[in-house]
Amino acid sequence: MFSWQTQPLTWMHFLGMLIGAVIVLFLVLFIVMYTIYFERKVIGWMQNRIGPNRVGPFGLLQSAADVFKLLLKEDIIPANADRPMFLIAPIIAFVPSFMVLAVIPYTATHIFTAGLNVGVLYYIALSSISIVGIVLGGWASNNKYSLVGGLRSAAQMISYEIPLGLSILGVIMLAGSLNLNTIVTHQATDRFGWYIIPQIIGFVVFVIAAIAELNRTPFDLPEAESELVAGYFTEYTGFRFAFYMLAEYVYVFAISALGTTLFLGGWEGPFLPSWLWFAIKTSAFIFFLFWVRATMPRIRIDQLMGFAWKVLIPVALFNILLTGALSLIL
């Protein structure tokens, strides 16, 4: 039933695919709930607080309670808003965030993974569609804070998409493939080990660009609460707001999974089962993002844009040429 990758399509294989995709959907909703809990707990401890501890044992049910609360809240649509666009924008932001998960290799068996030969390109292309959802939400709200938040978000995300795309190029040159499954298996046999070692410059650029793509601190200018209230989702309430939050945290998981796959060897590792290695590495990556958020102050917009174009892009281009030259010599 789950051998659909190697055999022709039958209804049984289709059922297997459907079950696989539904499992990924529920798993992702579960992961997002506990990523939010984990973030609040970690940042709480780092700031010498306790974090959520009221709902359920150790506050474990806090995120579930938040979801139910948002589901029961009134859905307010401002009178001045562009109604159809306002309704559709959170959906446009969410759909690509879930679709990118189709190509991530979670385990060695690949039953939850589409082994696309354009895997990396598929991820980069789809994740930029979410920018449309964010800009549309900001514009349709007809609110000054939302509009400025949406525009800033667009400027920031398109600027940082370039270093993100360039930082991955070094990995592609070493692996000779865009297929994420192949990239993982190449790392096991490569003479330098995981690509974090030969691609350390690429990895640093990737992490910085990833944080900026996620609109997280220190690059969270689109939702800087001291100047823009809540940025592009100021006018959103209830479950529509929840879908923006969901998209944001699915991307936290997705980009951590992508970073793990490209630079940290994916599911490769000794002794433990492959899915556990993948979970450990991805959790460590997610923890790093939260650690940065608890540590760094927000930077100014001119510093933000200057940093992408004057530092990250030249460094990423240098990394490509360096990788090219070294792989010719060595």
Binding site: L9, M17, L71, E74, M99, A102, A114, G115, Y122, G238
Partner: peptide, 30 residues
């Protein structure tokens, strides 16, 4: 080709989740 069908299933599920919860379940509860 089955890989692309898998991607299409992800697209369908990704649209189904927000549409069902925002337009079908949501109005009954809120």
């Amino acid at each position: 080709g089955n890989n692309y069908l898998f991607v299409l299933i992800f697209l369908a599920l990704g649209v189904f989740l927000p549409v069902s919860s925002l337009m079908v379940i949501g109005p009954l509860l809120r």
